[in-house]
């Protein structure tokens, strides 16, 4: 019998709500529901793409998973421990096995520290190598991300955006993480540099085998890099599945319209005739029923009432839509 491998990370029913407190009941501000009832799993060595527009809660979710932000309820089981109820010791273990890569390559590095010192700090704090080997380990890590060891002496401000992002990745790798959360880590870079960083991530994944949660709004990049993808809309995962399946046969109208809205680099294809109307509503006042129904061209009367539809439970490719997969017209 095949034993199903245990996921590295399993998130169940995660909610992150902000605000909504106040002493006087009448003046209480409604909570901002950034992440609603999200469940997902990441296998060791797997790359999961987390896709959505601004305000979809993808970054908040990424931070909550690493316990870098508050969470309201739910479970985050990392390597067998529920980190949502973590003790100080558990959190330390999480920090030793996970790392984050950020969008702004400059902002993620302390401007007053040489990049070598920034990497050395990780090695010292986590006692990764004996202090005599720190210098050579820094050189190793810099080589790993395609930089000359001489860069250890430079400061972030002397480097280009792409080089800084490589340093950020080297620092993340210094932890020797099992899981990396990359939050829009190529969005701030020029196209010609984006490719270099993407290739680096693909190379590192093969060499080191860490799992990556890749948060992005650029679907083309996600398609290139990720094994599986989860599409978020207003704090909920509306569709998840193997990347190619989701991209070729989207089952949620939102995914379908998102895919159609990407400007295609084909001079013979013009603009899509009827772009999806409207804009995502505020996460403070979520619509009843399916949050997408006010913009959905397929919406039925049932979509605007009751509980939002849940992700289906059939197979790896699942969508939170009451329509059968064939009925979506965008």
């Amino acid at each position: 019998m095949n034993v199903k491998p245990a996921p590295l990370l399993e998130v169940t029913g995660l909610n992150v709500h902000f605000g909504g407190t106040g002493f006087i009941p009448g003046l209480r501000t409604p909570p901002l529901r950034a992440v609603n009832d999200v469940s997902l799993a990441v296998m060791p060595g797997e790359t999961l793409g987390l896709v959505g527009e601004s305000g979809s809660g993808k970054s908040t979710l990424g931070r909550a998973i690493l316990r870098l932000g508050e969470l309201t309820s739910g479970e985050i089981v990392f390597d067998g421990t529920d980190m949502a109820r973590a003790t100080v010791g558990d959190l330390n273990r999480l920090r030793r096995q996970s790392a984050m890569i950020f969008q702004d390559p400059y902002g993620a590095l302390n401007p007053r520290m040489r990049v070598g010192d920034a990497i050395a700090e990780v090695l010292r704090v986590h006692r990764k190598v004996p202090s005599s080997r720190i210098g050579s380990r820094i050189a190793e890590l810099l080589n790993l991300v395609g930089l000359d060891a001489g860069y250890a002496n430079s400061r972030p401000l002397d480097l280009s955006g792409g080089q800084c992002q490589r340093i950020g990745i080297a620092r993340a790798l210094a932890v020797e993480p099992k899981l990396i959360v990359a939050d829009e880590c190529v969005a701030a870079l020029d196209v010609s540099i984006q490719g270099q960083i993407l290739n680096l991530l693909m190379d590192l994944r093969e060499q080191i085998g860490m799992a990556i949660i890749f948060i992005a709004h650029d679907l083309a990049i996600v398609r290139r890099l990720c094994d599986r993808v989860a599409v978020m809309y207003l704090g909920r995962i509306v569709e998840t599945g193997p990347t190619e399946e989701v991209f070729t046969e989207p089952r949620h109208p939102y995914t379908a319209s998102l895919l159609r809205a990407i400007p295609d680099i084909d001079p013979d294809r013009g603009l899509p005739e009827n772009p999806l109307a409207g804009e995502p509503p505020s996460p403070i006042a979520l619509p009843c029923g399916c949050a997408f129904h006010p913009r959905c061209p397929n919406a039925l009367p049932d979509c605007s009432t009751g509980e939002p539809p849940r992700l289906g439970r059939d197979g790896p490719h699942r969508a939170a839509c009451i329509l059968p997969p064939g009925e979506i017209r965008i």
């Binding site: 993620a108 700090e121 704090v125």
Partner: peptide
């Protein structure tokens, strides 16, 4: 609220290290 402080937290640095090595100098 800047990213490098969040990065320091994500790397498991102690409060005193974040405060004296990362926040105060800046």
């Amino acid at each position: 609220s800047s990213d490098f402080v969040l990065a320091a937290t994500s790397l498991g640095y102690s409060h005193s290290r974040i405060m004296f090595r990362h926040l105060l100098p800046n």
